[in-house]
Design a protein around this nucleic acid. Sequence first.
DNA 1: CCACAAATAGTTATCGATAACTATTTGTGG
DNA 2: CCACAAATAGTTATCGATAACTATTTGTGG
Lengths: 344, 344
Amino acid sequence: MLDDTKKDNSSTSLEEVAKKAGVSKMTASRVLRNKTGVSEKTRKKVLKAVKEVNYVPNRLAAAFGTGNTSTLVGIAVPTLSRDLFSQILEGIERRLQSVGYQPLIGTTNYCPNSENDWIKTVLSWKPCGVMLLGNDSSTQTWEMLQRSNVSVVKVWDTHDINDNSYSVGFDHYKIGYEMGSYLSNRYSGQFAFVGSSAEGHFLGKNRLRGYEQALIDAKATETKPLATYYLNDRPSFYAGYYGTEQILSKYPDTRIIYYLDDNMAVGGIFYCKSKGIKIPGDIAIAGFGGLSISSVLTTPLTTTKVPRLKIGQMAATTMLKLVTEQEVAKHHEVETELVKGMTA
Amino acid sequence: MLDDTKKDNSSTSLEEVAKKAGVSKMTASRVLRNKTGVSEKTRKKVLKAVKEVNYVPNRLAAAFGTGNTSTLVGIAVPTLSRDLFSQILEGIERRLQSVGYQPLIGTTNYCPNSENDWIKTVLSWKPCGVMLLGNDSSTQTWEMLQRSNVSVVKVWDTHDINDNSYSVGFDHYKIGYEMGSYLSNRYSGQFAFVGSSAEGHFLGKNRLRGYEQALIDAKATETKPLATYYLNDRPSFYAGYYGTEQILSKYPDTRIIYYLDDNMAVGGIFYCKSKGIKIPGDIAIAGFGGLSISSVLTTPLTTTKVPRLKIGQMAATTMLKLVTEQEVAKHHEVETELVKGMTA
DNA sequence: CCACAAATAGTTATCGATAACTATTTGTGG
DNA sequence: CCACAAATAGTTATCGATAACTATTTGTGG
C-alpha cells in the first residue's frame, strides 16, 4: 500500500476535492451546499471525491469568506449546573443542532461583568445571534450587542423587557403575585421568603416583588411584615435546608415560606421533617420551577411548574426565524401552572 | 454631531484601527496580541484607536489566517441536564474561559451516531482539541479524530481506556466492585441493580459489571443470581421510583438494590417510604455520584462520592497542556469516596 | 559624529471558502 | 440543422488576520 498521496497531517480542502473530481472548486462548493445548477453526474463525481479524500469542511473559512456571520449562536447563562437553566439549554441546543447551528455557551456566574466579558468574546466569533439567559445584563452589554448588529433574544423573565428586544419566557413578577395570592388566601400569619444571592445579586427578585405585592394587596402583611432571608450561596437542596433553619431562628413564628426554587423548598421540607415540624400544619411551603424532585415527594410540593424544555425550544425557534429573516413575534410567553400540592 | 465616519453597519477591522492610530495593521495586530517589538508610545496610540473605533476582533479571520486552529474546544456530552455531567461541564467551561478558550458543546443523547455527527461538525470549526464525556464513542468517531490531528481527552470512565488516548476520570468498574464488596459484606439475599437505558444503550455498564463480579467473588449470588432492571428512560428521581416498583414486583424478595445514580436511589427511597418498606431493614439501598440531594436526606444515602467539578477542571487542564505542548500525564484518576450512609 | 547592532515598524503572501460575474455546454423550436 | 435560451461549469476578487520577511529608526561605543 504505497498510497503516499494521502498526507494526513495537513487537512484536506475543497481544492483537493475539486481536483480529484476533475471540476472547479466552485462546482464542488455548490454540490456541498446543495445549490442548484449542478448536473446529477457532476454531483456524484464530487460526492465520491469528498469521500475519497476524507474532506472536512472548514467553517472558519466559510464563515469568514461570506458575509462574516457564522452558524454560531452565542449563549450567556448564569450557570450550567442548575436544573432551571440546564433544561432550557438542552432545548436550545437540540433545536439549533438539528438545523445546523451551534450554540457557543458561556457561564456568567450571575455577574454582569462576566457576562459583558463573555459577550465580547462571543461577538469576536461573529455569531448570527446571541441569547441571554437569566436577567442581569448590564446596559453596557446591551449597547455592545446593539452596535454589533446580531439578533438578540432574551430568555427567562419577560417582566421588564422593553420593546426593542425579543424575548421568550414568562413574567416572574406575575408568578410571584399568583403564588402570593394563593398562599394569602389560604393562610395567615408570618409570611417569609427564603432565597439566595450570588455575587451580591439577589436571585428571583421579580418573583419576590410580585409575591410581596400580592401579600400587601391581600392585607396579609399588615401586622407582620414579610420576612426574607437570603443565603449567600447558590440555590441548592442544602441552601434551602440551611435557609429554613436561619429564617426560623430569626422569625420563630414563621408560618408560610415561599422559596426561590423547588430544590430549596425540598431542602426546607427535609429540615422541617428532621425537626418534627408539620407541613402544612405548622409551616406551609411553596416552591418554584416544577423540578423533577417534586415528582417523587410523598407529599406533593405546591409550586409553579415551568416548561423549561419548551422555553428553550421556543427561544431557539425565535432565534432561527430572526436569523433567516422570517416573521416572528417579538415576545413569547409560555404557560406556567400553579400546582396545588399538599405542602401549602 | 456630523460624525458620519463611523458607519455602524459594517464592523470595524484592524485596518481601521491602524489607520486611526497612523500605524500599519501589523503593528496594531502586535499590540493587540501583546507581542514584543512595539514601543510604549505606539502601543498607547493603538490602544486609544481601538477604543475610539470600538474594535471587535474577528476570531474567524484570526483562526483562519494562522495555523488554522482556533481557541475552540469541542465537547461531546450525553446530555446537559444530568447533574453528573453538568457539573463536570461547569468545571471545564470555567477553566477554559479563564484562559481564553471557548468550549463548543454538543449533546449526543448517549447515541454514538449523534456523537459522530457532532464531532464531524466540531472538526469543521478547526478546534484545538476535543473532549468526549461519557463513554460511548464509536471507532468511526475515533478514527475521524485521529485523522484530524486534534488533541483528544476522554472524560469520565477510565476503565477500558487504551494507551493512545488521554483520559481524566475514574474506573467505574472499580467503583462498582467496591460497592459490591461493601454490600455483600453486610447483607445477604437477593441483590439487584436498577438502571436505565437510553437509545438502546445501558448506562453505567462498567459499574454494573464490577458490582456483579464483586458479588460473584463474594459468593453472594450463588443461590439467587443478580436481578437487574433497566428503565427505558433517562435516569431521574421518577425513574428510580418506578424502577423500584418494577424490580420489586418481578423479584419480591429483593433485599439489596444498587442504583445507577443517587437521583434514582432517592426515587427508590421515596418509593419504599410510600409503601412502608424499611430502609435498610427490609431493603438496603446504595447510589452513585454523591449528588446534592443526598446532603439533606434524613437518612444519609450510601453512595460513592465523585468530585465532578474537579474532574472538569482536571480535564480542562489536561487539554490546555496538550494544546500548549506542555508535558502532561496520559491518564489522570481522581479520588472517589465510598460514603457509608444509613441506607445500606 | 560615524558605524553598526538592536529595536521598532512596514510589506507581502497566505489561509479556504463563496459571491458575483463570465464562459461553455446542452437542449429545443422552427 | 441552426439560433437562441436555459442549464451547467469556471474565473476572479474578496473577507481579516498574521507569519515571515524586509525596511527603517534608534541607540551606543569608540
